[in-house]
């Protein structure tokens, strides 16, 4: 297997991780888990930015999108409640 197809395979895997993590963030009832899922999606997207030849954007996404944003969400969850209400 040459390098190019290996990287394409990695891309495919990371895209799958992004979508699964975003789905987890949407569906998980525990808000802390949902926030962590969203952070994982953000971190995987920062890898995709690196693959799209955008190192500046990848750094910003990793530092701000995956780091600070997750922290702010965690503070908000801790301040309010940790589980979602049941849908009626």
């Amino acid at each position: 297997m040459n390098v190019l197809s290996f990287l394409n395979l990695v891309d495919l895997l990371v895209c799958a991780v992004v979508l699964i993590a975003a789905g987890g963030a949407a569906l998980h009832r525990n808000l802390l888990s949902a926030v962590v899922f969203a952070g994982v999606a953000s971190l995987a997207v920062s890898f995709l930015f690196l693959r799209l030849a955008a190192p500046d954007v990848a750094m910003t996404e990793a530092a701000i999108g995956a780091g600070l944003s997750t922290v702010i969400f965690l503070i908000a969850v801790r301040r309010t409640q940790e589980t979602e209400e049941e849908d009626r």
Binding site: A26, L52, F73
Partner: peptide, 24 residues
């Protein structure tokens, strides 16, 4: 979703998606 924090998470995820679309 009805939960407010879930809705904010949704906005954040959509925001990431738009950014990825523009760079792509």
């Amino acid at each position: 979703k009805r939960n407010l924090i879930k809705m904010v998470i949704g906005f954040s995820v959509a925001d990431t998606g738009v950014n990825l679309l523009i760079v792509a």
